[in-house]
Design a protein around this nucleic acid. Structure first.
Lengths: 161, 161
DNA sequence: CGATAAAGAGATGTATACTGAGTAATTAGG
DNA sequence: CCTAATTACTCAGTATACATCTCTTTATCG
């Protein structure tokens, strides 16, 4: 089975390529794809705790802490202990964080569009549907056990944009 | 644009999921997806130099050195200076390296199959074709400049398996 | 043939991603 | 109500991935 026909290889390259395009398109902001995912989730769910945040964005709990650290060092995110459960840290966007989320939106959209551009337009929805199918069908592997527990709080609004 | 509809998010999750399945299926060998890609490429191209190797496997040249280091510490890979170009390092699988490549093959296949399982069988080829299309259409972002130069040697056989 | 440009490899630093161990706070059971 | 289990987080360690800078080797040009 040649490398170029292995799903795993293809998916890794796809991820690599998207990261490169996103980073190029959003260069001026110095925000990575994962950081942007966290930022938009915080925008829609201010005061969310780190475990729930990781569940929403699809990253490991320790990684959430790492990324939030970098974002709060840059003044985009503010963290504090939860009032209701003092084990938890809850996170908010600062004013600057909200400004960055806003200013980056168009660049993010351009990155997504450029990534999908090689695919004939009529195939794009089908492609995304198949990817979603693969993610949902494999959902039990989608995140480590560390995040799986607990009552995955329903996200408040999902107005996104 | 909600997170779950962004191509970048979906592709990241897909990569995450495949890694988890591969790691689980190949647990007993302690070999990661990237390491296995390098090993099979070395199997088909013994004595390949590091830059060409990186081009074949789709990883950065410094990363090639890192991964080869780990593999040679475990006695799976042997490296030496090229006879023809003493700037280059060329790599070979050791006997143990070849044995591991052989023993892992079935586990790798199982990982790939499990990953694709949620997709209806008649869609799988179409999915892989679309992914390939996206990779080729975006090929200019597929690898950093550091690898792009030089005469990407034609791989000798590609008998793979 | 010697100066210099180009290429390859290495080291260093950043970011993502995950595991495992350990600590503190909360909840559940007896 | 006190102990045990669970949960949230942190810290340390490993691996991938990439950028950048330095050093050596090779190639080229005058």
């Amino acid at each position: 089975m040649p490398l170029a026909s292995r799903p795993g290889y293809l998916v890794r390259r796809l991820h690599q390529i998207h990261s490169a395009i996103f980073l190029e398109e959003c260069q001026e902001f110095g925000i990575t794809p994962v950081q942007y995912g966290l930022i938009t989730t915080l925008l829609n769910n201010p005061g969310i705790d780190q475990v729930t945040l990781g569940g929403e964005v699809g990253i490991d709990r320790t990684n959430v802490a790492d990324v939030l650290n970098r974002l709060s060092e840059r003044g985009l995110v503010r963290r504090e202990r939860s009032q209701t459960d003092r084990r938890s840290m809850v996170a908010f966007l600062t004013k600057e964080g909200e400004a960055v989320a806003d200013k980056m939106y168009d660049s993010m959209r351009r990155a997504q569009d450029r990534f999908l551009a090689p695919l004939r337009p009529e195939f794009r929805a089908a492609f995304l549907a198949m990817v979603t199918e693969l993610i949902e069908g494999n959902s039990k592997y989608s995140l480590p056990d560390s995040n799986s527990a607990s009552g995955r709080r329903k996200s408040t609004a999902d107005r996104d944009e």
